[in-house]
Amino acid sequence: MTFMFFDSWHDLFRVVVVTTCAYAALVLILRFAGKRSLAKLNIFDFVVTVAFGSTLATVLLSKDVSFAEGALAFAMLAFLQWFVAFLSLRLGWFRRLIRSDPRLLLRDGQFLEAPMRKERITHGEIEAAIRKAGHGNVEDVAAVVLETDGDLSVISGTPAERCSALRSVMNY
């Protein structure tokens, strides 16, 4: 008779061994996959991260999936992430397909309502980003940009049109 809390010592031993091996394999694969795998997430990176987590959980807890199958799945996910990054660097249409563009939400202290509505960003979220950047007045901020990873970048000082880092987002 099996209980809800314990089936067998063998099952517990399997979890310990497979968890240790899967953890080591995932760390090694991510190490070789590069820093991009651990960077702030865009949509594709988020999907890969969720897939890694789901695969890890399946390998650890399912007797139907062997460690070798899980390690191969980790390697395939890392390869696919590398391949998508490779294609996005070389093919503009592919980059536009998988990555979002940064969006200007505030310019020279003025909220840009249309882009804010499209991105579903509130005044309060922008004001919070401005405070976190150490600014007390919205009017003193040259720009707030919603970056491709979802972060809000706050640029202060000079008028927005003089900020070279804003060239790609000025056409709001």
Rank of each mutant, 00 (worst) to 15 (best):
E139D: 14
E139S: 15
E139T: 12
E139C: 04
E139Q: 15
D140Y: 06
D140L: 07
D140G: 12
V141I: 15
V141K: 06
A142L: 05
A142W: 00
A142C: 09
A143S: 08
A143M: 13
V144D: 00
V145K: 01
V145C: 00
L146P: 01
E147Y: 07
E147N: 13
E147V: 14
E147D: 12
E147S: 11
T148M: 03
T148R: 08
D149L: 08
D149F: 06
G150D: 02
G150T: 05
D151K: 12
D151I: 03
L152N: 02
L152W: 00
V154M: 13
V154E: 01
V154P: 01
V154S: 12
V154N: 07
V154Q: 10
S156V: 12
G157Y: 10
G157W: 09
G157Q: 08
T158G: 09
T158N: 09
P159C: 13
A160G: 09
A160W: 01
A160Y: 02
A160K: 10
E161N: 05
E161A: 04
E161Q: 06
R162Y: 05
R162C: 03
C163L: 14
C163W: 00
S164D: 15
A165Q: 15
A165K: 13
A165F: 11
A165R: 11
A165M: 11
L166E: 02
L166T: 12
L166Q: 10
R167P: 03
R167M: 10
R167K: 13
S168T: 13
S168N: 08
S168F: 09
V169L: 06
V169C: 04
